[in-house]
Design a protein around this nucleic acid. Structure first.
Length: 843
RNA sequence: GCGGGAGUGCCGGAGCGGCCAAACGGACACGGCUUAGGACCGUGUGGCUUAGUGCCUACGCAGGUUCAAAUCCUGUCUCCCGCACCA
């Protein structure tokens, strides 16, 4: 996800986010993929405008300065972007295409203007989309949001509600939680539209319900107070005054501060009645603060017996409660109820539906309504249309002209872009654009008479809904993008960014692509095949952020350790999707590791490799490759660390092994890797080298077992020397026992390779009298077949193959090692040699 | 209320049915190297025990499935996040 450029120093939180993508890009590039890894800036937006007002400067200047600083720091981080493809959304070359898309959507009826109650942020001086209101507050400035009735531009995202919902299933490479959030946000619910009739007229009041089974229990009806119908109904009646007062009061309360259930339910009767379509009963109509205008039809049927909200309201205003669903196991009495009965049960007081299970009744009553023309099955979504107009300057002008004669006229394509005027005064009040006469006053494209431009600008999320397409052909000036290039590159294989955009950017971009597909501009359904949400970086228990003041800047870490150290720490400390805590000491660890790697250059190089080294090398290549592919960068680094330790402890290493280490490390610590690569005598960049491939034949588990035995034996010898208080041994004697039950191990091992049924094997083994073996073998079986043959046999059989065994131990203890077969040794010594373990004597 | 995720050693965190008393790093302790070392190398850090071993107790808590559980299932507690008077 491209960033909003801000002018401060990048901190470690940024560094982590970017490093994650960079590792992957470098890795894939080395693997031979053609990698499009670009950077761009989401350059329009309020902060720049606000900063301009504050400092009496100009948003463009402010933004350009910020971008300079930002990209400089990104380069210092070693991010391997293709800077030739950089895009900046605030230039006409880019936003022209926002306008172009707008016109296309407008043609299709997917962009429209309507008067609507909208979210208004006083501090930002603009309206906001629903997605940008978080807990009743502005997502950007956290100011309380209020509701205003305004003419606004919308994109008809609701036309794609079903497609957006269905499409989620295809998003296999997306985190579950993002998918769930989108599902909830779209909020599909299936129910029934029921037509109630007004008592005194033929007017119909449609309402949406998911519980048509309770229709016989309706005892009142409630409108959202701000519903336009309400004023109409009370107009000229004795209720008019009181209703208007109530509405005013509710609006003052502000919808978004009407928080949930703790809000006291309040309302009033408005003097009108509706008729229950099934019973013909008169139903009083109320208005109340708990009914939402935007959901359903803005009016509800209320069934106090079976809905908690309705119940509370009915109690408060003494409205009758009529039970229509009865529990099967106990009695229910309306007068005695202390809360609504919301569980399932059997229908009562419901005429022909009496005795029916209520779940079944939902279907049946809906069917019945349909037959009588009183209602039908329907689907509701919580998703609202995307409000895209903003009353601010620093954004893409909406390409529309208002003419007294011709009405609303879209700017013809040939006149694009509608450029943002640059000589603008920022007073901090209202939309500065509206005061620029040169901008506002235009000729109508149709009748050529005096007309006025739309002065609203677009939400910056329009910019970010298609920018990834632009990367494919950033210099294209005839079209928003070159379709051939887009066909080659898109959709995005791997997208990386924070969860905070789950229902904003990520939903808008999906909508955009689906709309573009219908416009035949692209041929795919979803913009992002795989999505990765990186975790947050914390310090002192809080997310690292400039506003919190707990940042560790990139500059300070770079100065102290070099930026590679920071990259290593950030990638090593935990898997990338986890939140992590910054640790100064942890960074030291990363620094030590890199130093250790670098010191390997001083090691003596040998031409001849060994089986052990090959095994370790290829095992490492295999693991690191797999881990990076799985985004487990921390584990990849651990593998590399293990390899480093291995090489450090060797007397001599091969140049090849060092080169491989350098390559494996290069995505993580690119600067150090390049330096090492050069010191190893290469003229090119290691980052343009081929990623090493492992050879399965070189990975030998037996060698590993030998390794392990050497390690153990060395540890044993140490222990003994310490216990015996021997400083420097003159000679070591190693007694090796006969090959105790070795054959039996092998046999069982064979069976283990061919079956997963451990229980069966154990039984077999018991029959064969291998009880002792089982304790050794059984726990060693693991799922991964590559890890299967795990039996460690330290018998002489194996020892014979250990050409290096003696050498290693002799080097370690600077003494001579004598290996003696136990059976050839003196009797008492032979006893010392336990099966599976060599015995050691030291002088 | 609905939905998503997490609870592991002194700490950060791996592991997600079997080489697990648990990777890797940090911290601490001891030893080595050294004029010195906050550098580097080695060893150790649940309890008891053996020269090499073995046993017990452990992965929030309580049950269960399995030859085998930190890992699977059920319940429960705590924490984090998203949506939320959605009819």
């Amino acid at each position: 996800m491209f960033p909003y450029p801000s002018s401060s120093s990048l901190h470690m939180g940024h560094a982590r986010n970017y490093a994650i993508g960079d590792v992957y890009a470098r890795f894939k590039r080395m693997q031979g993929f053609n990698v499009l890894y670009p950077m761009g800036y989401d350059a329009f937006g309020l902060p720049a405008e606000n900063a301009a007002i504050k400092t009496n400067s100009y948003p463009k200047k402010f933004t350009e300065d910020a971008i300079k600083i930002f990209s400089k720091q990104q380069k210092e981080l070693g991010l391997s972007y293709d800077w030739d493809r950089m895009i900046t959304t605030c230039y006409p070359e880019y936003y022209k295409w926002n306008q172009w898309f707008f016109l296309k959507l407008f043609e299709k009826g997917l962009a429209y203007k309507k008067k609507a109650p909208v979210n208004w942020c006083e501090k930002c001086g603009t309206v906001l989309a629903n997605e940008q209101v978080v807990d009743g507050k502005c997502w950007r400035c956290h100011n309380e949001v209020s509701i205003k009735q305004l003419e606004q531009w919308f994109f008809k995202i609701t036309a794609y509600a079903e497609k957006l919902l269905k499409g989620i299933d295809q998003l296999e490479g997306w985190p579950e939680r993002v998918k769930t959030m989108q599902q909830n946000w779209i909020g599909k619910s299936e129910g029934t539209m029921v037509n109630f009739k007004m008592k005194d007229s033929d007017e119909i009041i449609p309402i949406f319900t998911t519980r048509p089974d309770t229709l016989y229990g309706v005892t009142f009806m409630v409108y959202a107070p701000e519903h336009p119908k309400v004023i109409e109904l009370v107009n000229g009646t004795e209720y008019e005054r009181k209703v208007k007062d109530f509405i005013a009061k509710v609006l003052v309360q502000e919808r978004f501060s009407r928080t949930a259930e703790e809000q006291e339910k309040e309302g009033m009767f408005i003097g009108k009645y509706a008729i229950n379509p099934l019973t013909g009963d008169e139903i009083p109509i109320y208005i109340a603060n708990f009914v939402l205008l935007e959901y359903g039809t803005g009016a509800i049927m209320a069934v106090p017996a079976h809905d908690q909200r309705d119940f509370e309201f009915a109690k408060k205003y003494s409205i009758p409660i009529k039970i229509v669903i009865h529990p099967t196991s106990y009695d229910l009495h309306a007068e005695k109820m202390s809360r609504a009965y919301v569980e399932d049960g059997v229908l009562v007081n419901s005429e022909k539906f009496n005795g029916r299970n209520n779940r079944e009744a939902i279907e049946e009553i809906t069917k019945y309504l349909k037959e009588k023309g009183l209602g039908e099955k329907t689907v509701q979504y919580k998703l609202r249309d995307w409000l895209i107009s903003r009353q601010r300057y620093w954004g893409t002008p909406i390409p529309v002209i208002y003419c007294d004669k011709c009405g609303m006229v879209p700017v013809p394509e040939k006149d694009l872009p509608v450029k943002l005027p640059e000589d603008v005064r920022f007073t901090g009040e209202g939309n500065p654009l509206a005061k620029v006469n040169k901008f506002v006053n235009v000729k109508c494209p149709e009748c050529k008479n005096e007309a006025r431009r739309e002065t609203d600008t677009m939400d910056t999320f329009v910019d970010s809904s298609w920018y990834f397409l632009r990367y494919c052909s950033p210099k294209e000036n005839k079209k928003p993008f070159d379709p051939k290039k887009v066909k080659y590159w898109m959709p995005v294989d791997q997208y990386i960014g924070g969860v905070e955009h789950a229902v904003m950017h990520l939903l808008y971009a999906r909508f955009f692509i689906k709309a573009l597909k219908d416009l035949k501009l692209v041929s795919f359904d979803e913009p992002f095949t795989r999505l990765f949400n990186q975790g947050m970086l914390h310090k002192g228990g809080f997310v690292m952020s400039k506003s919190r003041g707990n940042v560790v800047t990139q500059d300070e870490i770079a100065a102290k350790y070099g930026i590679d150290t920071a990259r290593i720490f950030l990638l090593f400390v935990a898997s990338p999707e986890k939140d992590v805590e910054w640790s100064d000491q942890g960074v030291e660890g990363g620094y030590r590791f890199l130093n250790k790697v670098y010191r390997l250059l001083e090691k003596k190089k040998t031409a001849k490799t060994s089986k052990r080294l090959q095994n370790k090398t290829h095992k490492t290549i295999k693991d690191v490759t797999q881990y990076i592919d799985e985004f487990k960068f921390n584990l990849a680094l651990i593998s590399i660390m293990g390899f480093t330790d291995y090489l450090s402890s060797e007397e001599e290493i091969t140049k090849e092994s060092l080169e491989i280490l350098t390559k494996l490390l290069s995505p993580f610590a690119p600067h150090l890797a390049e330096e090492m690569w050069e010191k190893l005598g290469h003229k090119n960049f290691v980052s343009s080298e081929k990623w090493p491939k492992h050879d399965d034949k070189k990975i030998d588990l037996k060698v590993e077992a030998e390794e392990e035995m050497i390690r153990q034996t060395i540890a044993d010898i140490r222990n003994i020397l310490e216990l015996a208080k021997i400083g420097q041994p003159k000679k070591l004697e190693l007694f090796v026992s006969e090959q105790w039950k070795y054959e039996a191990f092998k046999k069982i091992q064979k069976e283990l390779e061919t079956t997963r049924n451990i229980g069966e094997i154990i039984k077999k083994a018991l029959v064969k009298g291998h009880e002792q073996d089982i304790s050794r073998i059984v726990p060693r079986v693991v799922k991964d077949p590559s890890k299967m043959p795990r039996i460690i046999t330290s018998q002489q059989e194996e020892l014979k193959t250990l050409e290096e065994f003696r050498a290693v131990i002799e080097r370690e203890f600077k003494t001579r090692l004598v290996v003696i077969k136990a059976e050839e040794s003196k009797e008492h010594k032979a006893k010392l040699a336990m099966p599976g373990k060599p015995a050691i004597l030291a002088e």
